[in-house]
Structures are given as structure tokens and as C-alpha cells.
Design a protein around this nucleic acid. Structure first.
Lengths: 254, 254
DNA sequence: GTAGTCAGATTGTCCGGACATTCCGATTGA
DNA sequence: TCAATCGGAATGTCCGGACAATCTGACTAC
């Protein structure tokens, strides 16, 4: 007969600083997340009941629940009524975020480079006007960039932005990503509609990406909105599938 | 001088049924969501302050906040301290879910058809064993399916499942999707790791999908986990990019 | 031995209140 | 005319408690 396989309840060293301006629930959730990341809280282990945890930390139960809930939303914990809260067992990294290619590459240690091919104002075509919610033929920014990693072309990025939102400096575009510039300009990114597909490269596209005509390309189109609902960016990207693929984790809405 | 463009605070007809087993916050959030969907709550309009809303409904503020928060998490509302809560302005549909191709097609009114090509037990290769967390060479289910829409092949789906989880009936597989079968078997899907790429079709793949060898294909690999952290499915899919692309909306983590 | 029942444990829901923080507009001052 | 200050309004955080719903395991009855 094997030993019982019930994962034990873990006793953690947790503490909160009431003089800190950081919210208490956030302090707690960060410590719990760190413990999960670090392996102190092993997958499957129970977290101990909320009441006792609250008492131990000198917090109220709603505060503790708020901390736990934020980790449940991240997919790190699972709650079961009548049972308890346990650490999810899988290799959850982080759910899909609205990420920029630049940040992705940098996080992967690839030291991305950018070559700005075009940075001008052009009249909006019907398609672009519809996506950005501006009048047709009104001026919009057009930015074309080539993204390289290790000196090899990786993606061709064509973006359109409504005017007046941000100052598009070519030198800055070559040293950082578009999303960083937008955030730095005080734009709060909120959501995006995105479409991922594939098609054969045209002669022109092939040349830009050092591929052959007819080679498969990974394509992505995206419209990004800020928290007021304005479209702040429309992009059409093509990626070399031998160099790049979209990897992400997603959660089930409950 | 133009008129003030401040969106008005909307007065809604809201009510809750205290005798219903449906949680009060959920009743409220559903009514709000319906009002947004229906256009009663127009984008940009303010929701009215929480305190007054709570008083009007005879609810406490935490309950009202819980309802609002769930819609904020869905990306339908935005809260601004000192200002209020307003309806997001954009065409937010729904954020990315862990969806099955079958459900997607059916929701799009495509009446999907499935042809099961293979449904057997095979020894797990190293790659599959690692993905599913089972011993190498142990038996796993292997299911190969061809998904058609309007009689045209659209995708080739190859899935591996650990044994004992679910009874894989070929007839059922041809009339519904794999995820539905798993849910019906009491498996709670929780999260998935996913990778989307592209490559040229091999001769074999081209034949299956009625494409030509070398044609671009959209590829997706996915490992799905249930809420205990077990891997419950590993799949390798190839799609015809002229017939299918991945469309989704995603939100920024705040 | 097996199935049904019951009790304990734990999370889910809800309440009412308190104070802090932030935003925006109006008032005030230079 | 313009800038700085102030105050109202709204959300953010936190508390302490109460009861309901659900799961697990042990006990009981058959």
C-alpha cells in the first residue's frame, strides 16, 4: 500500500509591511507568487485555509482572499470549495499578454535590432481608415521596419498610427519598440484584435526577408486600442516562420 | 465653442432577485453586460457611482464592486479613480479563450464535419511522453482527424491523449469536438501552452488537405492541462491558411 | 462489506462601514 | 491672462462578521 499522496499544507514565512504604500493584498500575492516561482510552494500543495492565514498575518479575510484571487486569475492557484486552495501542477508561465515583438526578443536574450525603412505621413486607405477609426484620406503615420536578430532579418513590420498621438522619431524607433514609445507617451494600452495566418511570400516580401519567392510566411495583423477605446495602432507584420513562431499560454474563462 | 463632450451617466433599469440561487453580483454583471451588448449602455458613458448604484439596488457596495470588477476583467469596463466607471469604446468581442476548432466553426455557422482517419493506441515517443508527462513507450491514444467545412478540407488534426481519461469513440468524434467530449467526461480544462507557426507542406500533408506540395501551411501545437495540472491532451494541427486563420482579442494585464 | 448519512472543514457570497488616494473642475491669487 | 490651490466626487483599500454551499472522510445502518 503506497503512502497517502495528499500534498501537505505548507507553512510559509509571510509578512506584510503596513507602513508601505504597497497594498497589503498585493504584498501578499507577490510573496505567494514568489514562493510558487521559487518552488517553496510545490505544485499540488494546499495553501492552508484563508481564515487561519488571515489570522497569522494579522489581516482580514477579504484582504487575503483578494491576494489569492489575483493568483487564481493568473492561473497559478485553484480553489476548491470544501477542500482548499492549491498550487496548480503544471508549468504555467504566464498567460498571453499583449506583447511586442521587441520585448519578446529582448526577454529571450536575442538583442533585437531594428532598421527603419519608412517613416512618413500618408493618406489613409479605406482599410486603414476603418481600422483606426479616422476619415479616409486623412493623414496617418506609416512606419515600416525590419526587425533583425543576430543580424538576420526576422520580421517585416508595417504600422499605421493616427496623427497627434505620439512623436515618431526614427532614431528612437531603431533603439526600442513601438509599444514602449507609446507607453512612454502616456498611452494606456488596453486591448487588441489580432489575426494570425500564413501565406506564400511575394517576390518583394521574399527579398526583404532574405527568403525565396513562394516561401511560407507567418502573418499577423493587429489593431490596438487604448483604454478610452481609441484605436492607436494598426499593424501588418510578416515573420519568417523558420525564425519565429507565436508561443503563449492561455487560460479557460470560468 | 462646442458642447461639452462628456458622455452622460446612464440610468438603467436594473433589478436583482434575492430568492434566486444565482449570486447577486452575477445577476448584476449579466444585466450590465447585456445592456452593453444591446447598446443601452453606450461606449464611453459613465456607469454612475458605486455607492448610489448599490443603494438603488438595495445591495452593498462590495457586491456591486464584484459585479463591476468581473466586467472590467472581461475588458468591457474601465475604472478611473476620481472619475468613475465607463464603458469601453471599442468593438470588444471577447478575449481569447481556449477554444476548439469545432466550436469556432460552429459559432461561425460553418457546420463543421469531421472524418476520423486514425483512432488507436500507440507507444508514446519521447516528445509526446514529455508533453503529456507519461513514461516513454507507454500507451497513449492517437487520434487523427480531418476537419471539413462546406465539404472542403480545412485542417488536419493529430492528437495524443493519456489513457484512462476518456473513452474515445470514433462515432462521437465524428459528430462533435474533442474538447466537448473531454468536458462531458468531467475533465475541467484549465490552461494550455500553444505555439503557432507556418511551414511548407510536405507531399503527404498536401495530399491530405488538397493543397500542393510546398504550399504554406499554418501550424499549431498545443498541450492542454486540467485544473489539477495534468496534461490531458497534446495536439499537432495543420491548417490551410486560405481557409482558416486565428482571430482573437487580447487584453493587457494591469 | 456496502451504501447511505452526517459532521467538520473550507471556500463562496454578502453586508455595512471606515479611511486613503486620485482626478477634475472651480476658486483664488499673482 | 495664467498658474497654483483647494474641495468635491469617485474609486481603491481594508476591516470584522455572518451565513450558505460544497467537498471529504468517517461513522452508521443494513
Amino acid at each position: 500500500m503506497p503512502k497517502p499522496e495528499v500534498d501537505p499544507t505548507v507553512q510559509l514565512e509571510l509578512s506584510v509591511d503596513r507602513s508601505s504604500p504597497v497594498p497589503l493584498y498585493f504584498q501578499l500575492s507577490q510573496q505567494l507568487e514568489a514562493a510558487i516561482e521559487h518552488g517553496t510552494l510545490t505544485p499540488g500543495s494546499l495553501l492552508g485555509n484563508e481564515i487561519e492565514l488571515a489570522a497569522r498575518l494579522g489581516l482580514s479575510r477579504p484582504t487575503v482572499r483578494q491576494a489569492i484571487q489575483s493568483l487564481v486569475d493568473k492561473g497559478l492557484l485553484v480553489r476548491r470549495r470544501g477542500v482548499g486552495t492549491q498550487v496548480v501542477h503544471s508549468q504555467v508561465k504566464r498567460p498571453l499578454e499583449l506583447s511586442s515583438l521587441y520585448d519578446d526578443l529582448e526577454a529571450a536574450g536575442q538583442r533585437p535590432a531594428t532598421k527603419v525603412l519608412v517613416n512618413t505621413l500618408v493618406p489613409a486607405s479605406a482599410e486603414i481608415a476603418a481600422a483606426l477609426g479616422v476619415a479616409e484620406d486623412s493623414d496617418v503615420h506609416r512606419v515600416e521596419r525590419l526587425r533583425l536578430a543576430h543580424g538576420e532579418p526576422m520580421a517585416y513590420l508595417c504600422n499605421f498610427l493616427p496623427p497627434g498621438l505620439i512623436d515618431l522619431d526614427t532614431a528612437q524607433l531603431e533603439t526600442t519598440g513601438l509599444y514602449r514609445l507609446m507607453r512612454a507617451a502616456g498611452i494606456t494600452l488596453h486591448s487588441a484584435r489580432q489575426s494570425i495566418g500564413a501565406r506564400a511570400a511575394t517576390t518583394e516580401e521574399a527579398e526583404r526577408l532574405a527568403e525565396e519567392a513562394g516561401a511560407p510566411l507567418l502573418t499577423m495583423q493587429r489593431v490596438t486600442f487604448d483604454d478610452t477605446g481609441r484605436a492607436v495602432e494598426y499593424g501588418t507584420h510578416t515573420y519568417r516562420p523558420t525564425r519565429y513562431s507565436f508561443e503563449f499560454q492561455l487560460l479557460v474563462r470560468t
